[in-house]
């Protein structure tokens, strides 16, 4: 029977949120393929993975955990080898990854080993007349490229936050197998974690970003307060202008030379909306702009705009959001 392979990520022994999206995407592709196609979820880990038991709910029929001591941290070479083996032996027509930092590193290695094409960071995947097609933003989001896979398996990585997880009342069958082999030549020796509990802008479902309009680094407190009011779902992003000025970390930069984000809600505060900034956030579901210049280009992509002084508008917005969540 045909199955779609969903390659999932875990960190520190727990399934990452993007895994639910990748399984959801795989489910969609399996349904499109028809003929009762199923979804195999694949985890690489040093031991049992917390959250693996939930993957059935998002569409996994089988949850395969391959274990090796090297999988305790990201082991690119050992992972690529294990996934390639699995993809070959399973005869999958489609293999999906998350377009995360790890997925984007891993997928090309697997594609090269399998000798097949890869589409990274796709925002849509469909099966048309048996052929897999994918849509991905190109030219800094100023156009979309639609491509058809000519060979198999089709490899794709899915842009985070685009494939909204869909649940169903089912469980997946767990399968665990140990895989042999060393860690490889490229070894992650440590991870310098960002501030505990801080959400990454690329993964948060709400992003509140600030630009030069904030005037000085300390004023980002206003945005941090707003982000907190959303109750742990929001991350604070930044324009390049303020990253270059050293006000915020590069990890928070949204845009062409920063991160691409697709949150449910993007709030641009004191950001003019330069084309390179838009490149990183224009696929957000809903965009709100707060800017005192009514002609700022950001208003052209914003669904809702408020013209005004951010130092007045944002605190008020924070109060109102708190009321909703209070």
């Amino acid at each position: 029977m045909t199955a779609v392979l969903a390659v999932l990520e875990q960190r520190d022994g727990a399934v990452r949120k993007t895994a639910h999206e990748v399984v959801t995407g795989a489910r969609r592709v399996a349904n499109d393929l028809g003929g009762g196609a199923t979804v195999d979820a694949l985890l690489l880990a040093a031991g049992p993975v917390r959250g693996a038991e939930d993957l059935g709910r998002f569409g996994a029929d089988k949850v395969i955990t391959l274990t090796n001591a090297a999988f305790g941290s990201y082991a690119p070479e050992a992972s690529a080898a294990a996934i390639t083996d699995r993809a070959t032996s399973g005869g999958y027509p489609v293999v999906l990854f998350a377009a995360s930092a790890t997925g984007k590193d891993l997928a090309p290695r697997v594609a090269a080993r399998l000798g097949v094409a890869l589409a990274q960071d796709v925002t849509d995947v469909t099966v048309e007349g048996g052929a897999v097609t994918a849509i991905r933003p190109v030219y800094a989001g100023k156009a979309l490229l639609k491509v058809k896979f000519l060979g198999r398996p089709a490899l794709l990585s899915l842009r985070p936050n685009v494939f909204t997880p869909v649940e169903r009342p089912k469980a997946g069958t767990p399968v665990t197998a140990a895989v042999a082999g060393g860690p490889g030549r490229v070894v992650v020796t440590s991870v310098k974690a960002a501030e505990a509990g801080a959400l990454d802008v690329a993964e948060a479902s709400i992003v509140v970003s600030g630009g030069r309009g904030l005037k000085e680094p300390a004023n980002f407190r206003v945005l941090e307060d707003l982000a907190r009011a959303f109750g742990g779902r929001a991350a604070v992003g930044a324009s390049r202008a303020v990253v270059d000025a050293g006000w915020r970390a590069h990890a928070d930069q949204v845009g062409q030379t920063g991160k691409t984000v697709s949150p449910t809600l993007y709030v641009a505060v004191g950001i003019s909306g330069a084309i390179q900034h838009l490149a990183g956030m224009r696929t957000s579901k809903v965009i709100v702009a707060i800017n005192r210049d009514k002609d700022a280009p950001i208003f052209k992509v914003a669904d809702y705009g408020i013209v005004g002084d951010l130092f007045e508008v944002v605190p008020r917005l924070t109060e109102e959001i708190k009321k909703l969540h209070g």
Partner: peptide, 18 residues
């Protein structure tokens, strides 16, 4: 292994409002 089917303009964001 990839055939380009189309290069498309990005979906128009529906007219925003102030």
């Amino acid at each position: 292994g990839l055939e380009i089917l189309a290069l498309l303009p990005p979906p128009e964001r529906k007219e925003g409002k102030i």
